[in-house]
Design a protein around this nucleic acid. Structure first.
Lengths: 362, 362
DNA sequence: TTATATTATTCAAACGATTGAATACCAAGC
DNA sequence: GCTTGGTATTCAATCGTTTGAATAATATAA
């Protein structure tokens, strides 16, 4: 384990140990085309000495020279949101077989950190950026710096395709409608709704879908039973919002037999609020969420929800990124794309026919 | 936005645009000591041109030269485990003010990925590694390669201090005892236990603490009501294990009024299993978890649990890392340390006195 | 025997930044 | 007029790797 001035073993160390030049060693260790006419004996000698000395090529030197960082930045707006991890998993799954390293960054819902990481992405010469963000945050020129440097971008959970950025997200409107239709099918007519916060992209289309399906079913939504979450700072605030609004619903004395929540955490908050008031879920009131994240699945009763194919969305984003990188390699510029994944109803235990209308079993 | 052969703006671009040498530009932009005797006019000119051209220093070139990657790797055994994120948050919180970038890596409970990332850590010349791992995985020489290269290591959630690695973890034994004493205080005598899997470091000490507290309270644990989780592959398997064992408990026909679960996900599984059989939590049976992760807090009933100060543990780990880096800077080698955080009982709604023993309110 | 190819290895110039040493300029001191 | 001492800027080497071009040694063809 020969150590030199720097703590790490370099090509030069190996070259010296073998009595060869740095070039030869490099050619062999990086499996360059030329290595096919390096004598087998020499090759073996280099390989074994490298192993003995514990050689690890310096990614910095290599990237500097080769002009490839082999890095794809994954900038998440909030890693503590259970939504993000499956996206990341999907990305990792696709990137695992490639030689790219996903560079995970967590903006923690803070604009300052978002900017800071954007800057690091540029400095670290990431070859592409996958952004997981539902924020609106006046993003007009947030990603401008990235685009200016011709770094391909793919965004998950937000439609920026008209700004020229490839986007993959769930069909929120269809999802909202799906949730509403599920409640209608069960026989509910009086439905409370907790809408998402203003600065979240998903909020509006989901609400539109809900209204559309309500109209189609001839259900009139009681304005007093429609709430709107304040801006979220972390996943817990969705829960707390749901809890608070559940109390308000009850306090309003308006009749309702089901609650359609903006997302799963909100739904869990609603369940808590209603339960504390002595209501049983789903016997006295149904609750439906959105997303299908882990906490919704492991709660009891399990939350009926609209599933986003989260992991698949991540994989798709990674796939597009690889294609964009390929295109750029060939001098082309990949055209921005848009994909709306189809949401899916996951029926768990938090929804059932309204009280006094037990038509289906359970 | 002058682009050169590489897509990025370099010092040379700025130097040319200003009619100065690369050195001067570098000195100004990197705020080197020499910059104090660069004429103010020159300085301004450089600064504004840099901004205009959209200059971002190349981290690779800089690190290669300065021999500092400004990177601390954070290798998590499974990011989808709700335990990991708060640790990461704690690390980020401490590192945010420093110029170090946390390089997040997710081994997804796969040995192969763990190795792969370990290798990347070396290649990317991370200056330190914080490992979040409770695995046993015959780690004898897993981290050997890292140590050989004199990269400081701090491990979270595992005691490797006798192997010379600084370790911060919760006092599992105290936590186990705390949980048991809580149930005893409520009046429980017949308690089922779901032990952790063999290859998880936490399993044994928690079990020891539970037994110790049971002994002290004169509680005899019914062997038929003690279960052991199989090895976990993801957070859901804890849930499924709890669910399955709850069914076995009931099938065994042995009497019990409380369940002490290995962790929160397991506790949630137990709650589900008992609920499906018609038992009410906590009226008919109490359930206690361990860790205090998000799903335990947002479930209804909220899970009574033993809280680990997870974020603080992350912060401490980061702090030690910075100190170790400092020490190394000065040629010293920081001595390995060990900290056992004090666990704390968080009383929620899943625990209450046993049926027929309603002594306390509620 | 000389030219030509093939095989095995090395030279040397990058990549983009940093930095100790060098240079040029100019004023002041003797 | 020559040194001394700032001030302002540049030279040139360096970090560890890659790679097109060059070289050397050997084998094959003419």
């Amino acid at each position: 384990m020969a150590q030199r001035r720097s703590g790490h073993v370099t090509l030069l160390d190996i070259a010296r140990a073998c009595g060869l030049s740095v070039s030869t060693v490099s050619i062999v260790l990086s499996k360059a085309p030329l290595s096919r006419n390096v004598a087998a004996a020499t090759r073996d000698q280099i390989l074994t000495t490298a192993r003995q000395l514990g050689y690890h090529p310096d990614a910095y030197a290599r990237s500097l020279r080769s002009r490839h960082s082999q890095t794809i930045a994954v900038l998440s707006f909030d890693l503590s949101d259970p939504f993000c991890i499956p996206v990341v998993r999907g990305i990792q799954a696709r990137l695992d077989s490639e030689s790219y390293l996903p560079l995970l960054m967590d903006a923690q819902t803070q604009r300052r950190l978002f900017d800071k990481y954007l800057n690091m992405i540029l400095e670290r010469r990431a070859e592409g950026v996958i952004v997981i963000a539902s924020w609106v945050f006046e993003e007009t020129n947030l990603l401008a710096d990235i685009k200016k440097n011709h770094v391909p971008i793919v965004i998950v959970s937000r439609d920026l395709s008209r700004r020229g950025i490839s986007s993959v997200l769930v069909d929120n409107e269809a999802g909202g409608a799906l949730a509403m239709r599920h409640l209608r099918d069960l026989g509910h007519r009086k439905i409370a709704v907790v809408r998402g916060p203003k600065d979240l992209f998903d909020s509006e289309p989901r609400w539109i879908g809900i209204q559309r399906a309500a109209d189609e079913a001839g259900i009139r939504l009681d304005r007093k039973l429609v709430f709107r979450l304040p801006n979220l700072v972390d996943p817990m605030s969705g829960f707390e919002g749901g809890l608070k609004f559940a109390q308000q619903m009850l306090a309003s004395k308006r009749p309702f037999t089901a609650v359609l929540a903006f997302d799963d955490l909100t739904a869990l908050g609603v369940v808590r609020g209603l339960s504390e008031a002595g209501l049983r879920i789903p016997e006295d009131c149904s609750v439906v969420g959105f997303d299908d994240v882990l906490p919704a699945a492991v709660a009891t009763p399990g939350i009926t929800t609209i599933r986003q194919p989260i992991k698949e969305m991540g994989t798709r984003a990674a796939n597009w990124m690889l294609e964009a990188l390929d295109a750029r390699e060939q001098g082309r510029e990949a055209a921005p794309r848009l994909h709306r994944s189809t949401p899916e109803l996951v029926t768990r235990m938090s929804s059932a026919p309204p009280p006094g209308k037990r038509v289906k079993k359970r």
